[in-house]
Each structure stands twice: as structure tokens, then as C-alpha cells.
């Protein structure tokens, strides 16, 4: 069972939900932080890191002795990362996605690939929880290979909880695709609703079953509730705006450790998700 925790809008409480859900279940859990631009779940789970692996992409290097400046590499590059002008080949590293097309199609075999490091993944244990997160190098624009490297560590014998980056862009799609269920965390504000709708459209396209958690549910307006009702999207949990939760968060403490009544609620959330995935493709495989 793989559960992703995503949101359209940032700052709605993905990490709060993901970490508290993981700690409430605790046994046989694997936690992946796929928000590789700014992973923060480690602040709440305090894992002991035992293994660090580099993540890189193949980056083209041109052998000027073999190159006849035919321009094929520039022509096939979908990202315009290569220019061939006047017997010169220019490569723009920040545009290269590491697809390998230029090297594969070079008629002169003049392009080889070197591994260009873009980040690392770290693995360890947070109590009984298996912990993995990815860290993208500062200034690097290409998230998805690091997200993919984190997801390669998925252990199918465990329940995997994935903390996803906000938004609906490539790194988010990479993290949620193929998961059995996605929890969308939102807040009852116009921004929360606007970005929730975008995230719902994304998940429908990807065919990932989902439900909504409304955080700070007692403030703002009722439009998120109305939208979920109209769209027949299950609202799995409502968390009120609570000073104690905010203080615990600011101190890096998962709030179920202080507000014990929430632990059974998160267990109940998991049961609801299990029920909702029965009959889906992934549910049947289980």
C-alpha cells in the first residue's frame, strides 16, 4: 500500500499529515520525503541516517575531434540545451534534462556522457519507521530524477507514506503517479480551493484515487466543503485551527505525541483509505 500526501497549495499541512499518520501506524511503515527541494519531514521524525547515495543525470560531453558540426544533437534536443553554430558546440547545463538523445543519435559518435551530480538520497531509521528522503542540490532545477531515486527505494512489503512537494508540476506528478491513494491536504480559503481543483484534475488524469483533508477547517469559508460534496470527493478528516498543534509544529514535534486523542483518528483515516482503495485496480492487486 502506497499513500501519497499532496496538495495544490503549499503550506496546508502535508508534512503534518504525513508524519502524524506514519507515527500513528508506526509498525511496518516506510516514510519517503519526495519534496526534494526542501525536505522537512526529518525535522519531525528525527531519523538516524545510515546511508547516503548520490543522484546524477547523464550529461553530454562533445569530442571536438570527432564532431563534424552537423547539428543533429541541437536538432534532436527537445529542451534546446545544445547549440551548434560556426564550428562550435555550446551546451547549456541548466536546460539539459539528461535524456541522452544527443549522444544516442550523434552520427559521428562524438558525444559521450558523464554523470552530473544533482542531489543525494539519504536512508535511515526513525524509531521503527524506515526513512528515505531526497535532497536536490541548491540551484539545481531538475527535481524529477531525485524524486525517482527516492521512489526506487519503495519496499512493497511495507505501507509506504510519501510526502510530496506542493503544486501540480513535474516533481509532484513523479511522486504521486503509481501510488495507491493520494491524500490532498487543503485549507478552507479561496487559494486552498483554487489549488485543490488543479490537484484534483491532475489526479483524475493520472487515475490515482484520492480524498481530501481540510486543515484549519473551522476558519475561512465553506466553499471547499461544497466543492467536495458536488464532486463526490470524500473528506477524510478535518483538523481545526488549534494553537497547541501550531506550537508543536513550530517545535518540530508531531502533534499526536501531545494530543493523544488524534492517534486513533489517524488510524481511522488509514482504515478509511483501505476501504476506498478496495475495488480499485491497486486494491484488487492487494
Amino acid at each position: 500500500m502506497i499513500i501519497s500526501v499532496a496538495s495544490g497549495k503549499g503550506g496546508t499541512g502535508k508534512t503534518i499529515i504525513a508524519t502524524n499518520l506514519a507515527l500513528s501506524l508506526n509498525k511496518n511503515i516506510q516514510f519517503l520525503d519526495c519534496d526534494v527541494e526542501e525536505p522537512n519531514a526529518y525535522l519531525f521524525l528525527n531519523p538516524k541516517i545510515s546511508k547516503t547515495e548520490p543522484v546524477g543525470i547523464p550529461f553530454p560531453v562533445v569530442d571536438e575531434k570527432k564532431c563534424n558540426y552537423c547539428g543533429k544533437c541541437a536538432e534532436v534536443c527537445a529542451y534546446n540545451a545544445i547549440a551548434v553554430v560556426k564550428n562550435k558546440v555550446l551546451i547549456f547545463p541548466e536546460l539539459c534534462h539528461g535524456c541522452g538523445g544527443c549522444s544516442f543519435l550523434c552520427p559521428q559518435n562524438a558525444i559521450s556522457e558523464v554523470n552530473k551530480p544533482i542531489g543525494v538520497i539519504e536512508q535511515g531509521k526513525a524509531g521503527q519507521i524506515d526513512f528515505v528522503h531526497g535532497i536536490l542540490n541548491v540551484g539545481e532545477a531538475l527535481h524529477t530524477p531525485v524524486v525517482r531515486a527516492v521512489k526506487n527505494k519503495i519496499n512493497n512489503s511495507k505501507t509506504t507514506i510519501i510526502d510530496v512537494a506542493p503544486g501540480t508540476s513535474c516533481p509532484v506528478i513523479e511522486a504521486v503517479k503509481g501510488t495507491d491513494f493520494c491524500i490532498l491536504v487543503t485549507e478552507p480559503t479561496p487559494f486552498g480551493l483554487n489549488d485543490l481543483i488543479l490537484a484534483v484534475e491532475m489526479l483524475r488524469k493520472l487515475g490515482v484515487p484520492f480524498g481530501v483533508i481540510i486543515n484549519r477547517a473551522d476558519v475561512g469559508d465553506k466553499k471547499v466543503e461544497k466543492y467536495c460534496k458536488e464532486e463526490k470527493i470524500p473528506v477524510l478528516m478535518r483538523i481545526p485551527l488549534d494553537r497547541e498543534i501550531a506550537v508543536a509544529y513550530s517545535n518540530g514535534i508531531p502533534f499526536i505525541l501531545q494530543k493523544k486523542e488524534w492517534k486513533p483518528r489517524f488510524k481511522n483515516l488509514y482504515s478509511k483509505i483501505i476501504k476506498l482503495t478496495v475495488g480499485t485496480k491497486k486494491g484488487r492487486q492487494k
Binding site: 547539428g71 541541437a74 534536443c77 529542451y79 534546446n80 540545451a81 547549440a83 551548434v84 553554430v85 560556426k86 555550446l90 547549456f92 536546460l95
Partner: peptide, 29 residues
């Protein structure tokens, strides 16, 4: 183009064997 428009445009005009370009602005790439 999604990205790299300046790079591709530069190659287009270079391929036309021009000696000069007249434009409003030009970016780093």
C-alpha cells in the same frame, strides 16, 4: 518554445548567414 527559445533563435539566424541582428533585447543564452 518551453525553454531555450533564445538558443534556438540564435541558431536560426546564424543558419541564414546574417552578419548582424537588430532587436530590442537579448537574453544571456
Amino acid at each position: 518554445a518551453m525553454g531555450g527559445a533564445g538558443i534556438q533563435s540564435a541558431q536560426t539566424v546564424a543558419g541564414k548567414d546574417v552578419k548582424a541582428i537588430i532587436t530590442g533585447n537579448v537574453g544571456p543564452n
